Amino acid sequence: MKLKPMMILPPLVFIGLAVLFFWGMQREDPGALRSTREGGPVPALTLAAFGDSPAFTVEDLADGEVKLVNFWASWCAPCRAEHPHLVTLAEEGLDIYGINYKDEPAKAQKFLDDLGDPYARIAADPSGRTGLDWGLYGVPETFVIDGKGIVVKRFAGPISASILENIIRPAIETARARSD
């Protein structure tokens, strides 16, 4: 039986795709989303008050203390999943600044009433302008900010126990070292 070129093509395409897939999986961190914000100053804030709390400013994020900025929404299931880890960090004394993203104020307040409020300061981004300025892919996203207002780390996605220990806490320590 003579092999026809059309019989060889599908296995060659499969092998080629398998090699590309394998090569892609060997990259350093294929799940990491690159951030142009890391290493630079915090971007502009176009925020509204959240409830009775006044919006915070860029200057508030460069007050000499390390903090997290966490974008969240009540309609976001992963935000609900990461929330206990934010509460833990807040209980440990870390200031977390929350930005409620494109949410209904009453639903956002109920979210905090039900799960607890880990935020030292909180504001709203009803139009999504601040999210755009910060390069937000979606919620939740968390930024570790050093005391000088420099973004040390951006993490897109929910914070799990593993992410907290292996990514967020080391970034907080780096931020503290830079703030001294």
Score class of each variant (00 low, 15 high):
P126K: 14
I145S: 08
T142I: 11
T130S: 13
G135H: 04
A123K: 05
A124V: 07
L136S: 15
S127V: 07
E141D: 08
Y137T: 12
V144C: 07
G128W: 09
G131R: 10
G149F: 06
L132S: 08
L136G: 12
R129P: 00
Y137K: 14
A123P: 13
A120Y: 13
W134V: 03
P126A: 04
F143L: 12
D125I: 13
G128C: 08
R121L: 15
W134R: 10
G149V: 03
I122M: 03
A120M: 07
P126D: 08
A120V: 13
P126Q: 08
V152W: 01
G147D: 06
K148D: 14
R121C: 00
T142S: 14
I122K: 07
P140Q: 13
D125E: 12
G135T: 10
W134G: 09
Y137N: 14
R129E: 15
K148L: 08
Y137P: 04
A123H: 03
I150A: 07
R121F: 06
W134N: 00
V144S: 06
D146A: 11
F143I: 03
R129H: 02
G128D: 11
T130A: 07
G149W: 08
I145M: 13
D133P: 00
G128S: 09
L136Y: 06
D125M: 06
G128V: 11
G149N: 09
D146G: 10
V151E: 07
A124E: 05
G135Q: 05
P118G: 13
V144M: 06
A123S: 15
S127W: 03
I145C: 11
A120R: 09
V151C: 14
P118M: 10
L136Q: 09
G138S: 06
G131C: 02
V139H: 09
G147Q: 04
V139C: 14
L136T: 00
G149M: 06
V151R: 10
P126N: 14
K148G: 15
F143Q: 01
A124H: 09
Y119H: 12
G135F: 11
D125L: 04
I145G: 15
V152F: 02
T130F: 01
G147M: 07
I145L: 01
V152A: 09
G147R: 08
D146P: 13
I150M: 15
K148R: 12
V139D: 03
V139N: 12
S127G: 06
S127H: 10
